[in-house]
Design a protein around this nucleic acid. Structure first.
Lengths: 135, 135
DNA sequence: AGCATTGTATTACTGCATTAATACAAGCTT
DNA sequence: AAGCTTGTATTAATGCAGTAATACAATGCT
C-alpha cells in the first residue's frame, strides 16, 4: 500500500493518511475485506508515532471505511460508503453553498462557476479513467 | 451596520466580522467610499476586544475590501474586487477540485454534483434577488 | 499456559491560533 | 499647542490540535 506523507504542507499527518486511504478505497485499489497494515508497521514505514496512525484508523472506522477486529487487524468494510445517500448529498449541498457564497463574494457570476465545475469535472473524469486503466 | 457574532460556533470572531463585511459589500449594502465604524465602536458594540476588530479590518484591507486612512477611519474601497479575475478563478478552481474530490470519495457521481450545483445556484440566485429588492 | 501481535488508553509536550491588556503614534480640530 | 479620535504595536494568557512516550488489554497460536 503506497502512502506518502509530507511535513512540508500544513495538513496533519493523520489526515493525510485518512485521505489517501479513502482515496485508495474509492479508486478500488483497496477492496472490501482487504487488510490494512498493522498500526505499528505503517507507523514505522512512515516514521511516525503509532498513535498517529491509530488516530487515522479510528477516523476511518468512524467514517465506516474500515472495521477493526480486536487483535486481528484492520480491514476495509464491505459497504462501499456507509453514509446514506441522503446524508452524503446533504454534506455536498453544504459544500456547494459555501462555494457559491464565496463566488458571490468574489463577484464571480454563478454561471461562470457552473462552467468551471463542468470543466473541472471532465478533466477529473478523464484523468481518473486513465488512472483506473493503469491498474 | 448590522453585524452579529456568536460564540456558539467555532468560527473565530474576527473571521465572522470579515465574512459579514465582505458579504455586505458584495450585496452592495456597504458601498464604495462608505466608512466603517471605528474599531473601538464596533468592538464595544460586539462586546469584544478592539484588537479583534483591528484584526478583522487588517484582513479586509489585505483583501483589498477596505482601506484605512491613518486617523480618519476605515473605508470601503472603490475597486469592487481587487484580485484580478484570473486570480479569483484560480481560487475557485481549487475549491471546485476539492469539492469534486470529496464527491468521488463519497462515491457520488460527478453528474449528480453538477445537478446539485445547478439546483443550489438557482436557489441562491432567486433568494438573492429577493433580498436585493428588499433594499 | 505463555508468548506474540493486534488495537487501546492515559498522559504530556509542543506549537499555534485566538483573544485580550495595555501602551504607542499620527493627524484633525479648536 | 492641547486634546480628541483614529489606527498600531507589543506582549501575554488561554485553549486546542497534533504528536509522541509509554503502559495496558485482548485474542490467537504454539
Amino acid at each position: 500500500m503506497q502512502i506518502h506523507i509530507t511535513t512540508h504542507d500544513k495538513v496533519p499527518i493523520y489526515l493525510q493518511v485518512v485521505n489517501q486511504i479513502k482515496y485508495l478505497v474509492a479508486a478500488r485499489r483497496l477492496v472490501a475485506g482487504e487488510e490494512l497494515p498493522p498500526i505499528r508497521v505503517l507507523a514505522e514505514k512512515l516514521v511516525v508515532n503509532p498513535n498517529t496512525i491509530a488516530r487515522a484508523y479510528r477516523e476511518l472506522e468512524l467514517a465506516g471505511i474500515v472495521e477493526k477486529r480486536r487483535t486481528a487487524g484492520t480491514f476495509v468494510t464491505h459497504q462501499g460508503s456507509p453514509l446514506a445517500r441522503r446524508e452524503r448529498m446533504k454534506i455536498l449541498t453544504e459544500r456547494i453553498d459555501q462555494l457559491l457564497a464565496e463566488a458571490l463574494q468574489m463577484d464571480v457570476d454563478l454561471d461562470d462557476v457552473i462552467k468551471l465545475v463542468h470543466q473541472r469535472s471532465t478533466v477529473m473524469n478523464t484523468s481518473r479513467l486513465k488512472e483506473l486503466s493503469d491498474v
